[in-house]
Amino acid sequence: MTHPYLDHPGPIAFAHRGGAADGLENTVTAFRRAVDLGYRYLETDVHATSDGTLVALHDATLDRVTDGKGAIADLPWREVRRAKVAGREPVPLFADLLEEFPGARFNIDVKAPGAIAPLVEAIRAADAWDRVCVGSFSQARLDAVRRLAGPRLATSMGVREVLALRLRSPFERSVPDPARAAVPGRAVCVQVPDRSGPVAVVDRRFLRAARHRGLQVHVWTVNDRDRMSALLDLGVDGIMTDHIETLRAVLAERGAWPDPV
């Protein structure tokens, strides 16, 4: 069994924040550009406003990327909606992204406890269970999402689970273990950085350990062309990038860019 979210030919290309290199991260314009290039997987982040409205934005505050100021969790939607990314583009509602890009799949980093219930409700309202994978840097937030959403939701491994996998990786077999794969409520993939400081996170042993559990391995955020190629040669299942044209070119040269839908 494979979760429908992972039903994709070849390595998955993720447009990180829609392709953050152009300065319009997490906007409809950025996501539209990625989709027009042929991206089927869009990575984004979610926060909730003070009145429970779920928005796609990476930071906890408006200050870095918009012309607004203040913490999203402290502001009502009527104020957040006036902020413009790079002074140009509005902060989108996550529900609107699901509607605007019906053919896309979303990889979501849930950034705050207040976003958990609105996120699950947005997925449920859109019946987007097959189009969404949720992860978090907080194991507690990820566990809460899993409890609320139930087994239909695809998730990546949390930080505690990734650490355990990494520590066990030298001792794993390469043969998948059907008893561990595709169990409802468990992670369907591992999403990790290429490196943690000087230490390589993704290597052949780590990939072997993930395969043993039936898990795909997706690596973020890779913007260097040579490193993209090296990771694909290693056998990773997906790459997240800010530089969407570069990753598209690397995959196309390998005959691994999917045909238009």
Rank of each mutant, 00 (worst) to 15 (best):
I123C: 08
R105A: 03
L165M: 14
P113S: 08
E100D: 10
A149W: 01
V261G: 13
T44Y: 06
D63V: 07
P11L: 00
G87L: 04
M228T: 08
D7L: 13
P92K: 08
V217R: 06
Q191S: 10
T155F: 00
L163D: 11
R180K: 15
R78T: 14
V85C: 04
G235A: 05
P113C: 08
A112R: 10
A48H: 11
D194K: 10
Q139H: 12
P193W: 12
R208F: 14
L37C: 05
F106K: 00
L231P: 04
A30S: 14
L98E: 12
T29H: 09
D259K: 15
Y5T: 01
V250N: 14
R248D: 07
S169A: 15
L54R: 01
W77I: 03
L148V: 01
L42Q: 08
M1V: 12
G114H: 13
L163T: 15
G185Q: 12
G214A: 07
D127M: 00
V192A: 13
F106H: 01
V35L: 04
V201N: 05
V175E: 13
R81G: 03
A230C: 03
H16E: 05
R32F: 06
A86N: 10
G135E: 12
L165K: 07
D130V: 00
N26L: 12
A13R: 07
N26C: 09
M157L: 15
D259P: 05
T53H: 14
R146N: 01
A126I: 00
A164F: 09
G150F: 08
L153T: 00
D143P: 02
Y39W: 02
V35T: 13
D22C: 11
F101D: 09
V199A: 11
A149T: 00
D109C: 10
A104R: 01
Y41C: 06
R208I: 13
A149K: 01
P9R: 09
R208K: 14
T241W: 09
G68H: 09
L251F: 14
V91E: 08
I123H: 10
L98R: 06
A209Y: 10
V261P: 15
R105F: 01
I244C: 06
G52S: 15
Q216I: 00
V159D: 08
F171A: 14
A182N: 14
R173L: 12
D109A: 06
A126H: 09
L167E: 10
V219W: 10
A60K: 09
G235N: 04
R173A: 15
F171W: 15
P102F: 04
T44V: 02
W77H: 15
V261K: 01
T241K: 03
G68Q: 07
V236L: 02
E79Y: 02
S196A: 11
P9Y: 00
D143M: 08
M157A: 13
S196Q: 09
P176N: 03
D233Q: 12
Q191Y: 01
R180Y: 04
E25N: 05
R225N: 04
L165F: 13
T246L: 13
L232Q: 07
V222F: 02
D233C: 04
T246G: 07
L97N: 04
D109I: 00
R81P: 05
W257I: 14
T29L: 13
L24I: 06
P113T: 07
A13I: 02
E99V: 11
P90L: 06
H58S: 10
H47D: 02
F137R: 11
V162L: 13
A83P: 08
T241N: 05
